[in-house]
Amino acid sequence: MAASTRPQVISLYRMMLKESSKFPSYNYRTYALRRVRDAFRANRKVEDPKVVEKLLVEGGQMLALIQRQVSIGKMYEAQRMVVE
């Protein structure tokens, strides 16, 4: 990760985790958290600033998607699952 974009990446990571943890559905929530962590870990070693920029844009879109889906999930909330 290039030094200049590091704070941006970390902030995006934190935001995505925070938003993912708001999914009311247990399955979606755990999956989203797992997927976000894995994606950031998989791209940890990326150095090329262009690629980092592209990934940041993709991450931003994904963050917006998570936010939308969390609000939809909240509209139709169901009972909690036995494992929660």
Binding site: N27, A78, Q79, R80, M81, V83
Partner: peptide, 11 residues
């Protein structure tokens, strides 16, 4: 049908 405060089974 599940009660309102009943827990959902695993799928």
């Amino acid at each position: 049908e599940l009660e309102k405060d009943e827990l959902r089974p695993l799928y």
